[in-house]
Nucleic acid binder design. Structure first.
Length: 488
RNA sequence: GCGGCUGUAGCUCAGUGGUAGAGCGCCACCUUGCCAAGGUGGCUGUCGUGAGUUCAAAUCUCAUCAGCCGCUCCA
């Protein structure tokens, strides 16, 4: 029987391991589920992603500043934000069908049944019961039993107990592991921004509208991680909270959706595999008045890269109430306090890096002649330019080393002198290096090297003295190759 | 967490009770004069982990860990 061809994700996972982009974590101890370490090339890719994001969100603008807040904040932060109470799901399993359900969703489905039958008194009664039982596992279980709710799959009422899955990781601060010292690893970077609102306003004298950006690790005890680095329990976020007047929020909401969508296109992501998807009303988080996702078509389907949400004034108000510190902005001209609305573009760094890997992956030809190439935008490629001696003699390796040293302050460089020139080109193609330079016998005479471009494999002679400028121009001018231009 | 499938070299995999293998890759030397050439030599494995059955286990049994696909969640 013919073996099924390995799918795209398998090929990418394998390439990531082999070439040093991503490794399974704790591998020598048998692995740790769904955790990954970024290798020498992967860390460069991720750094480039973060640099490109910061460049576009902070450096390219006058209305956004950055911060780097603590991962472990006061537990009060997460109580006020609703994460301690609300960031957990009551789950229940049916022992016969082995299906798992959200316990509250089962009750809601029952309420919906009553509504359709017009039994509005039952609707009201059960809704109230659900509201009081929602935080109490035993009461929720009792409600399901009392209502005679059966598993939609097996039709039995053979239920397990209700268990809470809180998505926040707990830890202990200080020497004693008692409940008083419980702390949480942040499940999002956003709250660190909200609680510093006054500090940033005072320190930077920013006026509405303005934004605060942050890149950092967040932690969620996901029930189902998976799809390689797409969903992991420890992940890096790139978030920006943009504060504006409530009446301007809809406009900024659209603005940031467009900006963020365009960012991926500018870095070369295939337009046909990128879309904005507006959330339906019942999908919205408790704090949001609107949310649109930037989605990418992965081999496993359309998946969210980034959410752009209108968080309203929910967070600042909650923290104002809970802390007793008013988090508002004072408008001198109108002589009034404004409670700003927040537009939040929140992206996942690891999954964005993975998007670039998946989107850049290409194969040309087949069998022995096959060329695997990562068509990264030169701005995010881990190595920008590799330098080779055509052969290992006549001073070519020394000249190549000299050129590599000359370029090192300007670009991420690499040098290779082993094996044939063709093989070295292929190796660089596979890690997405956009430019290769080859020193040959003529170089000592004419002061030129061959510049070979990754996507077209086209070559040109370039004077060594002009290399920095030529490469810098080529990086800026790079465009994603159209299918017709790709040599196959 | 539950169900189904899977785990052998860096990667892809063969090996169904009897001496652990192939291709690719990697390293050294020679060769090589612009797109995965060739020669010679070399490196690499607790057969995921632990226990059991057996004269003998990569192979059979149990447990455990990890991965993939489904169910609930999300950046």
């Amino acid at each position: 029987m013919a073996k099924p061809a390995p799918n795209l994700m398998d090929k990418i996972v394998s390439l990531c391991k082999r070439r040093g982009f991503v490794f399974a974590a704790s591998e020598i101890y048998g692995g740790q589920g769904s955790t990954y370490d970024w290798g020498p090339l992967g860390v460069e890719l991720k750094r480039r992603v973060k640099e490109a994001w910061w460049e576009s969100m902070v450096y390219a603008r006058q209305d956004v500043v950055g911060i780097d807040s603590a991962i472990i904040q006061s537990p009060e932060v997460w109580r006020a934000s609703g994460h301690v109470g609300g960031f957990s799901d009551p789950l229940i399993d049916n022992k016969t069908s082995k299906q798992r359900y959200r316990a509250d969703h089962l009750v809601e489905a029952k309420i919906e049944k009553y509504r359709k039958k017009g039994k509005m008194d039952k609707v009201q009664e059960l809704t109230e019961k659900l509201n009081t039982a929602i935080a109490d596992n035993a009461a929720l279980k009792q409600l399901i039993v009392d209502e005679g709710i059966k598993c939609p799959v097996s039709g039995t009422d053979d239920w397990t107990d209700v268990r809470q899955f809180n998505l926040m990781f707990e830890t202990h601060v200080g020497a004693l592991q008692d409940s008083a010292s419980v702390a949480y690893l942040r499940p999002e970077t956003a709250q660190g921004i909200f609680i510093n609102f006054n500090n940033v306003v005072t320190a930077t004298r920013k006026k509405l509208p303005f934004g605060i950006a942050q890149i950092g690790k967040s932690f969620r005890n996901e029930i189902t991680p998976g799809n390689f680095v797409f969903r992991t329990r420890e992940f890096e976020q790139m978030e920006m909270e943009f504060f504006c007047r409530p009446e301007d929020a809809p406009r900024w909401y659209s603005y940031w959706q467009e900006q963020r969508y365009q960012w991926y296109l500018d870095l070369g992501v295939t337009p046909e595999k990128l879309r904005m998807r507006e959330h339906a009303q019942d999908e919205l988080a408790h704090y949001a008045a609107g949310c649109g996702d930037v989605e990418y078509l992965f081999p496993f389907g359309w998946s969210e890269l980034e959410g752009v949400a209108n968080r309203t004034d929910y967070d600042l108000k909650k923290h104002s109430e809970a802390s007793g510190t008013s988090l508002t902005w004072f408008d001198q001209e109108a002589n009034e306090h404004v409670s700003p609305f927040v537009i939040e573009p929140a992206a996942g760094c690891d999954r964005t890096a993975m998007t670039f890997l998946v989107d850049a992956y290409d194969e040309e030809g087949d069998g022995k002649e096959q060329r695997v190439v990562l068509r990264f935008h030169p701005k995010i490629a881990p190595v920008t330019v590799a330098v080779f001696p055509l052969v290992k003699k006549e001073g070519m390796p020394e000249k190549a080393a000299e050129i590599e040293a000359m370029l090192r302050p300007y670009f991420r460089t690499a040098m290779e002198e082993n094996q044939s020139i063709g093989r070295r080109y292929r190796r660089q193609d596979e890690i997405g290096t956009p430019f290769c330079l080859t020193v040959d016998g003529e170089s000592a005479v004419d002061g030129c090297v061959t510049l070979r471009e990754r996507d077209s494999m086209a070559q040109q002679r370039v004077p060594i003295a002009n290399l920095v400028a030529v490469l810098q121009n080529s990086i800026v001018a790079w465009q994603r190759p159209q299918p017709a231009e790709i040599v196959s």
